[in-house]
Design a protein around this nucleic acid. Sequence first.
DNA 1: ATTACTGTACCGTCCGGACGGTATTGTCAA
DNA 2: TTGACAATACCGTCCGGACGGTACAGTAAT
Lengths: 186, 186
Amino acid sequence: MKIPAGRPSSRKRILEAAEALAREQGPGNISLDAVAARAGLSKGGLLYNFPTKAKLLEALVEMHIERAETALERSIGAGPEGRNAMALAYLRYCRQEMIDRPEPASGVLAAIAENPEFIDPVRRYQKQVMERLRERSADLELSTLAFLAIEGFWSLRLMESDCIRPDEVQRVLDRLERELEGVDPA
Amino acid sequence: MKIPAGRPSSRKRILEAAEALAREQGPGNISLDAVAARAGLSKGGLLYNFPTKAKLLEALVEMHIERAETALERSIGAGPEGRNAMALAYLRYCRQEMIDRPEPASGVLAAIAENPEFIDPVRRYQKQVMERLRERSADLELSTLAFLAIEGFWSLRLMESDCIRPDEVQRVLDRLERELEGVDPA
DNA sequence: ATTACTGTACCGTCCGGACGGTATTGTCAA
DNA sequence: TTGACAATACCGTCCGGACGGTACAGTAAT
């Protein structure tokens, strides 16, 4: 767990290379040779960092979840303790992520393509989010709706679908945010 | 285009075998041999029906889109010409599909894994749905929200995530349906 | 001496796809 | 009605290449 500094650590470079390849060549077509070449090291070097392809894919999924968890945690910390606090935090984290990271999380698809078991951590993460929504929602149905819509948004981004224009997305999320902040429940 | 009857046509059996394998072994792990074996014919026979693997995956995507299109069309025909007719039809089609076809559309993932270009038909389909929503919505934001939520729902099903309980899903969709039917816009 | 690699050579396996058969069922002229 | 041919729907094998992974000798920095 050392950070040699200078250029990003090999581990990080490898993970980003794998991610980029998954996006460009298709999630099922990332070979160790290609990843190594793209990351700017030898195959031996790659296998030094990740002894098997499975470990690499596992790390890819883990990276995304860790990013999501810390960003979400930050959003929860920043937000107020209002009516549907958790859903609002989740929605705001999602909006920030849209700006910060326009690229889809194709690495996760690559992992799933290889072995469906690699989604398990994602499922755990989602379950945890839903659990917190259940605890901290004045209007659970509305919060769940927000969760589903955000999930749908990730999914569209994953397929790089442009069926909804950015301004339309903004308006929908604005509306959702207003309703979560809540004028009245029912 | 003959229908030999007796058991389902080889084409259909092959597509279903590929689908099942994608679900079980992972979308990136369907080999022609495995598909042939599962479909109950030889590799030669498979390649007679689908001259290349790409054609098979293409057909897999096409099958899903055709199913979705006809089911959606039927739902549009059955529904009334109310306030947010298109979104309501889409939502009702989705609810019906939940019952009729509990298995996720893993075949589409298999195609994407091999070559991201295979999503193009899906994107076209989504664009077409959104276009119709734009034409036939009293409250476009709400309709778009419904579209996103449904997309999210498909996505959760694709990952076989059980983070939301079925009864919770039902309640959210009930609520969405009521709001789309509309007591008042704003 | 340890860490973090590079570079090359290699192995075994899997997989897509080409290809040469084969069985069955028409079709049609003589 | 029979023989000639052809189309349909497959079977089973084989080949070449890609890929995951191993092994190992060397190296430059710390």
